[in-house]
Design a protein around this nucleic acid. Structure first.
Lengths: 254, 254
DNA sequence: CCAAAAGTGTTGCCTTTACACCCATGT
DNA sequence: ACATGGGTGTAAAGGCAACACTTTTGG
């Protein structure tokens, strides 16, 4: 696979289509969880000074899933991330030439000015392990509270909406706890995570019972101190039991 | 939108990329239900003599959903079809130049020989209303039992697999009965439909109760005669109640 | 009249929901 | 000490699976 060196920005703008497929891009909605808030990782374009999703293009001989993974690794420093393709956005208005403000001084006729169909992925990462890194075209990369996203570039707000929707629908089948929380966590924290994603309150007592009945957690002889009031137990995922249960079609019940 | 006239086949092969986006295609898995079997509509290539999914390309200014709809209408004669985008297939092996047998006498360098990412849609249609019609490149278009699909072109078998999977997952939320069955139908027929899609037996009595409890059907003063034994009642969807229930998040319970 | 399929009802179980009680901790 | 959040238990409600019985039809 011919790869484009990072520093050759003008080469990318002028002749990127020799390396990448035209008309196809990949955008990633990277979810994290911190201070009881669901977060999304965004980038700020150098020239537009507007925020956008981390995204990129697909090398001519690269699987689209791999493109998404490549982008994720570049932005977060992590590999082996939980990743799901959720939707292809194919509105013909998805092109810069139909916008007033255009990045990179793009000229009419550039391959980047043409219409793109973007494949949307969402990813679940452990907030504390991420080292947000801007790419060559952006000067900032940071977390945003999912409820306070600014007006983004193109249709990226819509992409986040759809990603959230997909995340909610898949909450039953996917290990959001295992991927979004740190290694050790408390039941109230896990509950907060579900409540945030579902955007509704759950009964504390029933939640615990339900989770523990799944028999995929391991309670440690350790409590989380520091907060006021009674210190809650810390839990780990019992990865062995958890993997087994997933194979048998575990459902979390949401 | 510049449209390509049908008869200009050579023009399409040589310069189709002037009308359509490169690297992007749309494939439709059209489901029908007949004689208690789930069916899929397939086409046979004129030259390859191999079967494939109905598919096509996306005009440069056309929404991908509309491309899918266009293809559906051309093949089935129906519009207003229930349609769902379910997955984007982005394996780099999806290209003819990596195959032994190539259709249309395509030469190296042709835009059609390049790699395509295809957006998969599935559609639910009423079997009896469909008039299967081959396109310009195929000489046959007919229904195949979903359990007896032959070896198809490229990764089209895999696309059908994924479509079925998606259909099963969405069985809870989507009106498979309303779209796959004729206007009037019996409960045993509806049950057969669910059993076929889910590939498992359901209890006749519990099924009826559950369905009727949804309060979206209207029982007619009419029975389905002709079969041996007791004649079952005919039902219609009460579209008003049904639409209302769907908006409120009706779940069928599968 | 009989076999097979269709319509209706009942029961018991198990999951979910609601809520009561006690315990621990920092202020 | 006390307000607040955390851990555990129980009882009622509702949904679902299992099964019995009657009715209808073509042969």
């Amino acid at each position: 696979m011919k790869k484009l060196k990072k520093y050759k920005e003008q080469e990318f703008i002028d002749r990127g289509y020799q390396y990448f497929m035209r008309h196809i891009s990949v955008d990633c909605v990277i979810f994290g969880f911190h201070e009881n808030q669901l977060k999304v990782l965004l980038l700020k374009w150098k020239d537009l000074q507007q925020w956008c999703l981390p995204g990129g293009f697909v090398y001519k001989d690269e699987h689209i899933d791999l493109s998404a993974r490549r982008i994720l690794t570049e932005r977060t420093g992590l590999d082996n991330i939980f990743l799901k393709q959720f939707y292809a956005f194919g509105d013909p208005n998805r092109e810069w030439s139909k916008r007033k403000n255009v990045p990179l001084n793009l000229k009419k006729g550039s391959w980047l000015m043409e219409r793109f169909v973007t494949i949307g992925y969402w990813a679940l990462v452990e907030f504390s392990k991420v080292k947000p890194a801007p790419d060559e075209l952006s000067d900032e990369c940071r977390w945003w509270d999912v409820n306070r996203i600014p007006k983004l570039v193109l249709d990226h707000n819509n992409i986040i909406e759809k990603a959230l929707e997909s995340l909610r629908i898949n909450l039953n089948d996917y290990p959001v706890g295992n991927t979004l929380l740190p290694d050790k966590f408390t039941m109230p924290e896990l509950q907060q995570l579900y409540e945030t994603i579902l955007d509704k309150k759950l009964d504390r007592r029933n939640f615990q019972k339900k989770m523990i009945a799944l028999d995929i957690f391991q309670r440690l002889n350790e409590r989380k101190h520091g907060g006021a009031h009674k210190a809650p137990y810390l839990y780990k995922f019992n990865q062995k039991k958890y993997q087994k249960a997933m194979k048998q079609g575990l459902r979390f019940g949401f």
